[in-house]
């Protein structure tokens, strides 16, 4: 559940600094709206195809990346068909496709941990050390909590079943949250107890 779709590789695209990739993605997407037209879309599309080729992403994975969006894009296409004409409908949908694929390229060629580290480093430069530390602690804690919350939820569900209670949303969510909150308070204590070198003010 907690792994991204990273495709290992050693291409220029893989090796480019993560934040540069994020920056480029942002620029391309903005440009597609500012310079709205077939020409800029075609140019962006070509560059994108080139990058996918350089990164040696198998076509199968490209298709998998766009597939979850196909259904929505189909709807947008149909809507535009009624509102405008097929040409404009095609344009809008293709622009979405280019943006989604460009973003997927970032995910496919960048390890999550590298991206997180890059973000932490960038934040470390613009934020005071303490805030940057807080953010990186929050990121790790969240990864730690996801399986923990899932376990608590399963325990609550089984307990309700064992007691012959229905499993309505409310009956499941409330006890899960209360137990998770109690656990969170104990974890906050443990973090304090385990950080003797951190400054503690009461």
């Amino acid at each position: 559940m907690l792994t991204s779709d990273y495709v290992p590789g050693d291409s220029v695209v893989h090796r480019a600094r993560p934040l540069i990739k994020v920056g480029l993605l942002f620029l391309v997407c903005t440009w597609l709206f500012v310079r709205e037209g077939w020409l800029s879309l075609a140019a962006a599309g070509l560059v994108l195809v080139a990058f996918f080729a350089i990164a040696r992403i198998p076509p199968k994975i490209v298709v998998a990346a766009i597939r979850p969006a196909l259904w929505v894009l189909g709807l947008v296409f149909v809507a535009q068909l009624f509102l405008a004409d097929w040409r404009f409908a095609g344009f809008v949908v293709l622009r979405f496709a280019v943006m989604i694929l460009a973003a997927s390229l970032l995910t496919l060629t960048t390890r999550t941990s590298d991206l997180v580290e890059a973000i932490e480093r960038a934040l470390g430069r613009i934020l005071p050390a303490r805030s940057a530390e807080a953010i990186s602690l929050a990121l790790s804690l969240c990864m730690r909590f996801i399986p923990r919350v899932r376990d608590i939820f399963e325990e609550v569900k089984n307990a309700q079943r064992a007691r012959g209670l229905g499993t309505s949303w409310r009956a499941l969510v409330t006890p899960t949250i209360v137990r998770a909150l109690k656990s969170a308070d104990e974890i906050a204590r443990a973090i304090v107890a385990r950080s003797p070198d951190g400054p503690h003010v009461r």
């Binding site: 602690l137 929050a138 906050a188 951190g198 503690h200």
Partner: peptide
Amino acid sequence: MTNDTTRDIVLIALFAAI
């Protein structure tokens, strides 16, 4: 980091996990 900040961070991470 004060104890209250620590608790806030834990709670924020908890609800992201939820």
